[in-house]
Design a protein around this nucleic acid. Structure first.
Length: 358
DNA sequence: GACCCGTGGTC
DNA sequence: TGACCAAGGGT
């Protein structure tokens, strides 16, 4: 008769195999009494939402360097936060990060709430992040469920109900398994297990501390779980982007996108809407640069810029033109010299567009 | 529940 | 190349 999985089995594995991460207090240090900084835990958890550890590391270091305390982040101009976040994606996270910092600094005297419900009331903090902060920063036995936990639990208990229908059951089994002692380490242990051994493809079951009690390992279904509803295919949208270069120094004309929606609050080069059907002739005549006091000679750049967003593919045709230094600037636009471009709040797709024009 | 919201790595 | 995936949240 096989033993049912226990938290201790996994915690012992975690004590030996925990990943060394910039925002993590190692199990050894925890035993020595080192306490995680809730600000660090929160910042890392927001950055890690739907984002890989490798992509987050440098941003996390940079943010802590720029804003060591939550009060510093609360006092920072939103524009600076968007610039520092540029390239990480899901930009509403950055806006909510700033709003959350302001709330904590102003309404909570710089301290994060210590309960799941109190945390989840803050902007950008949902069920997962609230549970993660409560467990990791405040030692509360909250059931932390992310994509890793979903994968591990559906396999461990052979839950064949497809996601997201299976979420309540997953939450329940995770809650039953979460120990009163070391709940934060336990949550991180399950996530480490999912990230390193219980992977989506070709899981390393032979190395797993829970192998003996894993139902999907026994039945051979491990690699087929969790089950998910099929995803829709992404449509392709097209548009044009106009890279205006100031003659003397090749500064690029930029403008701000609207505060909400796709790439909200980020900077961009002027361009057309990204409609499903649009032709190149329309693009040229729709150039929003008619009022700068000069006739511009827009030349198409060879090769189209391709970029994929969450729910559509984009094909951007790039046009470039040199602009006399004495020309005017359209409303809400500014010139950004080449040496300033790295610090602008430019999303990746816009950096691709600008690169294509140089 | 459905849809929106980025990016880079992997197979 | 394309689909999938990654410490999800807001509406």
């Amino acid at each position: 008769m096989k033993t049912s999985p226990s938290a201790n089995e996994l915690l012992e594995w975690y004590d030996r195999h925990a990943r060394d991460l910039p925002w993590r207090v190692s199990p050894e240090d925890r035993r020595l009494g080192v306490v995680p900084d809730p600000y660090h835990v929160w910042l890392s958890e927001i950055m890690l939402q739907q984002t890989t550890v490798a992509a987050v590391k440098d941003y996390y270091i940079k943010f802590l360097s720029l804003w060591p305390r939550v009060e510093d982040l609360a006092a920072a101009p939103e524009e600076d936060v968007m610039k520092a976040w540029a390239g990480l994606g899901y930009y509403s996270r950055a806006r909510n990060l700033k709003r959350c910092a302001e709330t904590v600094a102003d309404l909570h005297e710089g301290r994060f709430p210590e309960t799941v419900s109190g945390l989840q009331a803050l902007p950008g903090i949902g069920p997962y992040t609230a549970a993660a902060i409560a467990a990791i920063a405040f030692d509360q036995p909250a059931a932390v469920v992310d994509g890793n936990v979903e994968r591990v639990m559906t396999r461990l208990y052979e839950i064949t109900t497809p996601l997201p229908e299976a979420k309540p059951e997953i939450k329940a089994v995770m809650a039953a398994l979460t120990p009163e002692a070391r709940p934060g380490d336990f949550a991180q242990a399950v996530m480490d297990l999912g990230a390193t051994l219980c992977t989506p493809k070709r899981p390393a079951c032979s190395l797993c501390p829970w192998m003996a009690g894993c139902a999907a390992r026994a039945s051979g279904l491990a690699e087929t779980l969790p089950r998910k509803a099929p995803k829709k295919t992404k449509p392709t949208r097209t548009g044009a982007a106009f890279v205006a270069l100031r003659a003397s120094d090749k500064a690029v004309m930029l403008r701000r996108r609207p505060p909400k929606g796709l790439l909200g609050g980020m900077s961009e080069v002027p361009g057309t809407e990204w409609t499903v059907e649009a032709d190149e002739a329309t693009f040229v005549h729709s150039a929003p640069l008619q009022d700068i006091g000069a006739t511009l000679d827009w030349r198409p750049v060879t090769g189209v810029v391709r970029h994929t967003f969450t729910h559509f593919h984009l094909e951007l045709t790039i046009f470039r033109a040199m602009v006399p230094d004495n020309a005017g600037l359209p409303e809400n636009c500014w010139w950004s010299p080449p040496q300033d471009l790295p610090d602008e709040a430019l999303p990746t797709v816009m950096r691709k567009a600008i690169d294509a024009a140089f």
